[in-house]
Amino acid sequence: MTDLTVHFAGITMKNPVMSASGTFGSGVEYASVFDVSRMGALVTKGLTKEPTAGNKPPRICETPAGLLNAVGLQNPGVEVFIRELLPGMLEFGVPVIANIAGRTKDDFVFMAERFSNTGVAGLELNISCPNVKTGGMALGTVPDVAAGVVKAVVQGTDLPVIVKLTPNVTDIRELAAAVADAGADALSLINTLVGMVIDVDERKPVLDNCVGGLSGPAIRPVGVRAVWEVSQAVDLPVIGMGGIANGTDALEYIMAGASAVAVGSAFFHDPLAAVKIIDQIDEYCTEQGVDKLQDLVGAAWKGNNGRR
């Protein structure tokens, strides 16, 4: 029996597999499809202070080994979420992490405070959404600005603060270092890559928003590289995500330096992806004689490749 437990930033997960924000609703949608309580943790859809209508459709477009989305953070707002959706999510008995997406620093601070004593295990700051006109990625591409948001949130909350970073920057290590200095407890890498698809019959972009965030197996090598770079440069636990669709993919991220991983677009390809990934990680560890999964974190760059 391999020990798959993950402890990071004060959060304990029985295995390293979480849901990625925005791909798993509030978990209830999948409750009849598989045993959601098997997940290591659940991450909410990106939440805003006020209800957000989201972008005009079309919002999604399939791409080679992935998809583009420009949902635009449609959500009922933090109050309705806490009242109507969070209780059902908590009932799965696994840590719930609230993904909050402010338009301004003050929005972030407000929502972080609002989540105190609600039962959530932590906050994921979404300063990396590519699909909104204010906030989102605009707050997450300049190190000083990102650090300012993180600093303000950390001061106002006791909850662990995970910062989700965008890969749409020249050097993701600079951002990671800035938010680490500002007091972040952990990092989520990566949000989607900005992309576009054009319909050649219509001679215009497929998405009404023109651009969207690319996710799915197509972006996995970009995410693995980001985790590799950041986990060696910054002394914070990292949650790796971007195109994870099977156990091998998850292990790549872990060996690149991720303490935990999140599954997102893979749910659309195979709703059972997350539980299969948990089982496949376990099988790999058993076959390889790994006692503790955490021994593999960063194995690809650590001395002796994580072997004892």
């Binding site: 925005g22 791909t23 798993f24 609703g25 949608e29 999948y30 499809v33 859809k45 989201g54 459709p57 079309p58 919002r59 999604i60 477009c61 399939e62 998809l67 989305n69 949902v71 449609q74 677009s265 749910f267 659309f268 709703p271």
Partner: peptide, 16 residues
């Protein structure tokens, strides 16, 4: 008829 990703109401990709 709309393009969908999750089909279960989780991703909010298919709206009218």
């Amino acid at each position: 008829d709309e393009r969908m990703a999750c089909g279960v109401g989780a991703c909010v990709g298919c709206v009218c």
